[in-house]
Nucleic acid binder design. Structure first.
Lengths: 144, 144
DNA sequence: ACCGTCATTGACAATGAGTATCATTCTCAT
DNA sequence: ATGAGAATGATACTCATTGTCAATGACGGT
């Protein structure tokens, strides 16, 4: 039933480039980088490779309102993220921290959680330390 | 500095229609309903009204991968939702259930959560009871 | 109640992320 | 090495969302 997944240069290079980026990157960004670095790669290929990785569990989508969909490399077990709104870096959030919430929801609402898009946005330790006063970083007044 | 927000029929009717829907609805859906119900209303107006409501805190975006962005009316205090993937209905999730997670993240990662897009997808009590066996509901094979 | 200002509206054009298509290229089981 | 068919890449396409701008209507001042 499953397709015989072939290991192509493109799939490999997309995975490698995504893994190198410590922050979430968009398909377009990846495309630009790869075209610059090795020329000739279709945008559609990037999307397909990313989709395959998400399906595999080796990457995850990060969707922020007003931002393009971005992707992060991750280990299959950790599917939740802490996204720093200042430096754009992404940390994994362990499943265990999340489990009590799921249980509480089930107990109190009778709601059986199937999938959670749990992305927490805020200021990471590093950025927090770097900006002692108030302003976390660039204003980054998004509009869209 | 702030614009003098005017109370127009359109803003009112959009808010009312959104409030009536017990499930998340897209801008397009709202547009269709309003055109059918009272004719002549611009799609852009719907988007603007929804954006205003989100800014106010009286509505919230629900974004699911592979689905169009949808909106739910909500009280300003509760910004997290339980979205039933079977009946599309949306329940509010109380802030208190969520607080321990925020604390844990801060304690363990030194990460100060600023905003969380916390939408939990799953099967609500009602749908769960209605489908004792396996299949939760219609396949709803979306694409895009 | 009337007026004038200016935010809001609605129709339509424009944008742009993401997807479908399809001839060509490349993987991999044999 | 070879053939089947999966993956690629160029491009056309879709369609949700936003920009534009003349016309409309809300509301403070009178």
């Amino acid at each position: 039933m499953a397709s015989p997944r072939r290991l192509t240069k493109q799939q490999t290079v997309v995975a490698a480039t995504l893994a190198l980026a410590s922050r979430a990157v968009s398909a377009q960004e990846l495309h630009e980088r790869l075209v610059a670095k090795r020329g000739r790669i279709g945008l559609a290929t990037i999307y397909r490779a990313l989709e395959a990785q998400v399906a595999e569990g080796t990457a995850s989508r990060v969707e922020r309102t007003g931002h393009v969909t971005a992707y992060v490399a991750c280990v299959p077990e950790h599917h939740h993220h802490l996204v720093c709104t200042s430096c754009q870096r992404v940390e994994d959030l362990s499943e265990v921290a999340f489990a009590p919430l799921i249980r509480a929801v089930r107990r109190r609402h009778g709601f059986q959680v199937d999938h959670a898009a749990l992305d927490l946005y805020g200021i990471c330790q590093t950025c927090h330390d770097a900006h002692p006063a108030g302003r976390p970083g660039a204003p980054s007044s998004h509009r869209r």
